[in-house]
Design a protein around this nucleic acid. Structure first.
Lengths: 342, 342
DNA sequence: ATGTCGCTTGCATACGCAGTCAATATTCTT
DNA sequence: AAGAATATTGACTGCGTATGCAAGCGACAT
């Protein structure tokens, strides 16, 4: 029923709506309408055309359709290597939701140093209907997107566009509250690379929260978001004079490196000698060798929200520059002191 | 110099080659040629047109170009959730190489149960120039791709198409040789899900290699590729009568779960009581808390090879159905017994 | 029986660009 | 200096589809 004789397309090029029209004995317009939801066409004709189309293995060309309708049903996604590595599955989740909305995901990968600007004209060349940027984009680029009518949603970033972000402030506040109750007085902060916006934001949130609870947060030590980076920074911090009682890392991977540094390089106990916390709740954080206290960043929710926000903009259903905050949840595990120890 | 007055595109729709032609005082054909590498046009004219184009913020439309040239410069990539999770960064690496070859990556994500067939007509609708499938595809689908002239490269899979795969046989043989030298006599194999082709292949390679070195490899215990799955399977295997002296896992994540099961649930020492090995060399395998002996699957190389193979096919430079094997490297760490212990 | 209205359908055109063909400008040859 | 060869350029058409417009057609009311 599905499989009739299929495509005799052979080598004769692709099957077009004209071929279907000829076979069904109708005009090309009718074929076009048969494949356009809600078009003015009778049920019988539509059925007949669909039969002919199935027999020929015809499917409408998105390319040609895009040219006519000015809607490509393509959503551009910008990622850097660092983003891809720190947010496992982010591309997959974005892809799922983009597809559920009837679109396709066109991925633009950038080297970490970026300058996501040069890519813009390329984006426009593909007539993307919208853009999800998990990358820092210059304001000028965002303005040009707006001028060209391309909606943009920033992922875990702020800027002159709609955005979706994890509620770092709230998450960090919950974490700080817990740490305060369990004996933290003086903490070091291991940050990501200098320019990393999420690290910046988490650091800002941490400063505010630590101040609120009367704890000291030392100036940030910058690392590179990796396990090795966290390891090295931790060794540096803890071998100085007057080591802190707690190490807070801008992401889980560095926190896991910190734990390994304590246990395997410095011979310190976690959380006995020093408490350690991260941010993200990557799968490894829950593994018994680490059992890292952290704040869960709900990537599936972020992805869903980003796509919905974008689709709403594309369909003109929403005001631009809307900002959506997705809650983050504190996850207490064994790398921080227990409540009794306070 | 780059930034002139840019687009006055405002709301008047997109800038076309006609707009540029008018501004530069030439024909539309000339504009087209100015943006086509190697076209017949004088250097001065080209420069003048590029100036006009820059002033207007013009870039040729890939969509329209695709319609004319029958080349979309779009490469489709098929992934399932499991693939995305087990091969971190795979999408990113594929994207990088696809872009270096002057194409763009159009991602098709599939739920794990798949049936990657329904997606084919959609693929063809986008006129993808080629396809990289990190998914199991029915033969019929592959045949239809061939009929439609869409080259396919299978990623870590075999089938009636070109393919790129990690050399599991050689990698497993090296691992088995090392294990044999260090005291392994009787090993359990923790496999992935029933249908997973890479797990199958690694299992087959392991059986052959273990036989060659005169070691026993017990029938596979199936798990789900996750840490929790490896943990549970390990507990089951080691609490039975006559536990094995070695546990070999179809991927690293399960092997890490196995280590955690031994140390944190069963109170066993690794490798003292049981040696453990995996396959992949994910970043966590090298972290000091685990230090897992494994076989490195070079994802960047696989990605590069896949893209090159595909591009060669697209450009007609290579025979179809070519198969490329990328070497895998044994990585000896502390989860297996040391050579002296043999 | 005639006019009107709503639903279908076909015709013709446009979307933005690449490439063919013929015309023109340029250079080289003897 | 004239003719041949070559390098540039422009007018025009087609890639595969969507849609405005007008024509056809049955139903319905008057």
């Amino acid at each position: 029923m599905q499989q009739t004789d299929d495509d005799q397309a052979g080598l004769g090029g692709r099957v077009t709506s004209y071929d279907v029209a000829r076979r069904a004995g109708v005009s090309q317009s009718a074929v076009s309408r048969a494949f356009r939801e809600g078009a003015s066409i009778s049920a019988e004709l539509r059925a007949r055309i669909h039969r002919a189309a199935a027999a020929l293995g015809y499917a409408p060309s998105h390319i040609a359709r895009a040219l006519m309708t000015q809607r490509s049903r393509l959503v551009g996604v910008l990622v850097t290597e660092a983003t891809a590595r720190n947010n496992p599955d982010i591309l997959f989740h974005l892809g799922q939701h983009i597809q559920e909305a009837g679109n396709r995901m066109l991925v633009f990968t950038l080297p970490d140093d970026a300058a996501g600007d040069g890519i813009l004209s390329d984006l426009l060349s593909y007539h993307v209907d919208g853009l999800i940027a998990a990358t820092t984009l210059p304001e000028e680029t965002l303005r040009r997107c707006a001028r060209h009518g391309v909606p943009v949603v920033l992922y875990n970033r702020h800027g002159i566009a709609a955005s979706v972000a994890c509620d770092h402030t709230m998450g960090m506040r919950d974490l700080a509250a817990y740490l305060a109750r369990t004996g933290t007085r003086d903490a070091a902060f291991i940050a990501g690379p200098q320019e990393a916006p999420v690290s910046e934001e988490r650091h800002r949130a941490a400063r505010a929260a630590f101040a609120e609870f009367g704890m000291t947060l030392r100036p940030a030590v910058h690392a590179d978001y990796t396990h090795a980076g966290g390891h090295a920074a931790t060794v540096a911090v803890l071998t100085g004079v007057a080591p802190p009682d707690t190490i807070l890392c801008a992401n889980d991977t560095m926190a896991l490196g910190a734990i390994d540094a304590c246990r395997h390089t410095l011979g310190l106990s976690v959380p006995g000698d020093v408490a350690i916390a991260g941010f993200d709740d990557v799968p490894q954080a829950g593994w018994p060798s680490y059992s890292l206290t952290t704040v869960a960043q709900p990537i599936p929710d972020l992805a869903r929200a980003a796509v919905h926000l974008l689709v709403d903009q594309i369909d003109g259903r929403t005001t631009a520059n809307e900002r959506r905050l997705v809650p983050a949840a504190l996850v207490v595990r064994a790398s921080s002191r227990s409540a009794a120890a306070g």
